[in-house]
Write a protein that binds this DNA or RNA. Structure first.
Lengths: 201, 201
DNA sequence: GTCTATAGGTAGATAGAC
DNA sequence: GTCTATCTACCTATAGAC
């Protein structure tokens, strides 16, 4: 493993765990098993190292999400595969959302400028249009497509962001909670579909 | 305004904005328009000052939420009033969730010990039992009550936690986004109710 | 109670030997 | 490229005058 990779891996771990402000260059160096001076040789300063980590985390997520947003599935299938794929990513990386959310709230303008001008930026437009079209055709009930998308994302991500709270309320340890999240995939997609499909009464 | 209150108000603002690690005692003193030494006279150290702020934020939220969890409304009304009241609290304090979530993730054990042994701890048991009973009576479709509660909380809170992201995707400024959140109250409660009510087909 | 001054410690960053 | 040593700045916390 190359030095630069070792540094990135260590930095990723520390930054995700502690956030930018509380992370220490010394701790990153220790974890990478190199000297502190060498950090500055590869990444001029803390900011640059952080940016590298942040962008890597972002690029790990964004394309996989957008692939689904932009797929050609019928609506219900798209919702199912969105929830499935999104929660799989989260189960693989349960701590990244906390990290991204905290840091984007620290510097919202910077976040918007760097992320939202990126080719991989989150882009649910195609899904929104699709929902609108299904509403017009009468295939699903009337619903604001923007709110629907927010509902979908919220139900997937929030349980990972607030995991200590939910684990404590539900009295689950880490493993049990992750199993519960596995089951949740099915629950969430059927929760959404049940809400929007038309009912005869 | 008493000195102690001035300090608490200033500390609250700074801690919520920057988080514990990035907050500076000097900045708090400046905002409170007092001297830095005086901070340590009233609150022995940064930790103690932080705890005071954190607990205040927590006690502002928890009882109002629990009041609804434990109310005697029929289920659908309870869901509506939960979403309404919860999102009103969030609209009044849009930055507190980010703050609480970040800090509870920093020290999960401490959070659980201090918060979850508190009389005001989040307690959705009564709602969970109520959902279970309505399922058994056949008044709503079969659903895991725990997942339902998580869905409710997630859809209310997450849009405030991830506001920079959503504002940017939806191209809304702060005011427009808050108006959008006002409208959201109705959308979320009907989204939930539509999902769980029984359908004849 | 409120201030000033400063101690004491720590973090990011640089210089320079190898 | 990698290390050690050190500089400089900053931050929390305390001491002590008023």
């Amino acid at each position: 493993m190359e030095t630069e990779e070792k540094i990135l891996a260590a930095a990723k771990e520390i930054f995700i765990q502690k956030g930018y402000a509380a992370a220490r260059m010394q701790e990153i160096a220790d974890k990478a098993e190199i000297n502190k001076g060498l950090l500055h040789y590869y990444f001029k300063n803390k900011d640059k190292l952080f940016s590298a980590v942040f962008m890597e985390a972002f690029h790990k997520f964004a394309p996989r999400i957008n692939k689904i947003f932009e797929s050609d599935f019928p609506l219900f299938e798209k919702i199912e595969s969105f929830v499935d794929e999104y929660m799989d990513i989260l189960l693989e990386n349960p701590n990244i959302p906390k990290f991204v959310i905290h840091e984007m709230n620290q510097k919202p303008e910077e976040f918007i400028n760097t992320i939202m001008n990126n080719k991989d930026r989150p882009n649910p437009m195609k899904l929104i249009v699709q929902v609108q079209s299904e509403v017009q055709k009468g295939n699903i009930r009337e619903i604001n497509p923007l709110q629907l998308v927010i509902n979908m994302i919220s139900m997937c991500v929030f349980p990972f962001v607030a995991s200590p709270l939910f684990k404590s309320i539900l009295q689950m340890d880490k493993t049990t909670y992750l199993q519960f999240m596995q089951l949740r995939k099915k629950e969430v997609s059927s929760f959404i579909i049940e809400s929007i499909r038309v009912k005869n009464e």
